[in-house]
Design a protein around this nucleic acid. Sequence first.
DNA 1: CACTTTCGTTGGATCGGTTCAAATTTTGAC
DNA 2: GTCAAAATTTGAACCGATCCAACGAAAGTG
Lengths: 358, 358
Amino acid sequence: MAPMTSGKTRPVRLADIAKAAGVSHGTASNVFARPEIVREEVRERVKAAAEAMGYGGPDPKGRLLRAGKVNAIGVATGEPLSYFFDDPFARVMMASISQACDATGAGISLVSAANSEQLAWNIQSALVDGFIVFCMEGDSRLVQLARERKLPFVALDLDSDDQTVAAIGIDNIAGAGLAARHLAELGHRRFAVLALPCADAGFGPTTQAQVEMALYSGTRDRLRGYFAELSSFDIDVSLVPIYETVNDEKSVWAGLDHIFAGAEPPTAILAMSDRIALHALDWLRQHDIAVPGDVSIVGFDGVPEGAISEPPLTTVAQPIAEMGRRAVKAILENDGSLSRQLLPVDLVVRASSGPAPA
Amino acid sequence: MAPMTSGKTRPVRLADIAKAAGVSHGTASNVFARPEIVREEVRERVKAAAEAMGYGGPDPKGRLLRAGKVNAIGVATGEPLSYFFDDPFARVMMASISQACDATGAGISLVSAANSEQLAWNIQSALVDGFIVFCMEGDSRLVQLARERKLPFVALDLDSDDQTVAAIGIDNIAGAGLAARHLAELGHRRFAVLALPCADAGFGPTTQAQVEMALYSGTRDRLRGYFAELSSFDIDVSLVPIYETVNDEKSVWAGLDHIFAGAEPPTAILAMSDRIALHALDWLRQHDIAVPGDVSIVGFDGVPEGAISEPPLTTVAQPIAEMGRRAVKAILENDGSLSRQLLPVDLVVRASSGPAPA
DNA sequence: CACTTTCGTTGGATCGGTTCAAATTTTGAC
DNA sequence: GTCAAAATTTGAACCGATCCAACGAAAGTG
């Protein structure tokens, strides 16, 4: 039997086109990459051959090897891929990263995995020029993996004191201070703190001392910021209850159950994330506690949901767009010197905070 | 001057490691790709050399060429990249695509571009095994580009009658019929339609005849579905006002201003998207029109925002998760035969629809 | 007509790995 | 101690392009 057009469809290569058109592969390449330097007659002949053989243009796989640059940045997280589309903070951040990438024509590869073995492989084999790493609380594994790739990478919102990794974060202490000062200036004197996790230990009431030993420096710094500012108003921070949540509805509600069970419930709540604050708003509404009439609350992050909640949430807004822009810039224009950057935060006053009740 | 360790950091290649460890590059490759077939002593030696020279593991760029498969699927749209994180429908779809990819260990590359020249290049040079194309209304350019890459691709929710492109869509006619029947069975007899765009012509009142000539078959089919069902209830559809929106607040509000200006305002509104319906809900609330007391409204798409709106939205839900799963499966397990699939839709009855007022 | 430009084309080198048949070494059996 | 079988290692081929020095032909110059 003659070979014929065998069952398998072997892909058409540039070299096949060149042969068919009777030119060298160098010329064939030029037809696609720099058509202007090829004589028109030849150009047309090659294009015709390509068309006839069903050639889909130069395969980027081949080009890539030579070019070196992928022109795409990888965004990595330890969470499942859908995190990028579900989580409010991630979405805003991704939108800003997207814009920065669009502006420079770079693509985005989402890197993640169900299990951590897969994750390692996915990071090792990602076709990207660099990584932006979404650092969940204490997720140093991800940073380690990214570092091993020896590609430029920046960590976002890094909860770690490792000064050797490039990171773009915010001044948690100053931000928390802003929130505390705002409430104190409104006359509040009885506070409660709904904290982010300190470690992987679950949730429940905790103490300042324990938070000081926290695995996650974000949680620690925000508490420090709160308490430093409150102290300057002569408030005895040792009396301020701290409840460690896991940033979900259940633990936040449990925290509020706990906090409001006492004889002298707080008039002001410092929530370490908007998500916590929004869940708290639900709890307060269900318990007929007026916000900000009876209780004021200030969140942290500045996610868009906070602007349309009932009431709209006073919060410490991270400059999310700016962070995204800088991260992309750091990867794309990396001159080898990625540094740590702390961006300032803004207090956004909305309707969830008001004067302390008389 | 001797070369020394020159200023430029030239990347370390596998061959360098092999030489340093005194083995062939074949063996060096095996150390990383199939460590179990390499004698332990050699393995350790090579690994040590890699460590010492700062080798970040085999470069995927090199592997790719040989392997052929990228193990990533490209998701393309003509909109800016941030569309994936902003648009409710896109987000739900992406979340489901993400899950399907996570399950199979595939990655996701987001492909898009600010201008259409960039878009062509981005599609031509995307390192992916196939494309899922988000077809905006009548965006055939994107389909054309994807087709030229000669890679497997499926169009999502394709608004085109081109039977030669693989597409996963829904039965718009049947879905619209469900919505119309629901309202008719609740006793409604005075209807209005808030339509999606028919072409790129802007917004304003339109007619059934014009919609029949619509560029976008989705809009056309949904209207056909509505009217076929309404006719079967002996409703004179020629009297039903149709207002073409561009799926944003401004055009929806203008449409309602127009529709409710008449002497006999409708008691039931058929909205061709949830986004339209949600904007309509805002307008109705601002005009003190009770939903569903005075007016009932049914949306289309089934985005999650519809479940938490005030009131929650009755809608025709697309099986978004299933569509995402099938699209990913079609690309990844592509046996060369991608087909058109029409998935059934579901009517989800919530609180925005009720009996017609007496 | 010889000589320099200019223009287009060629073919080899290169990018950084993987793979596999063949060569070599080690191990096991008798 | 010899030989076959098993375990390792080698080195060339290949993946699909781009790039560039060198070359041949056509055009321009004196």
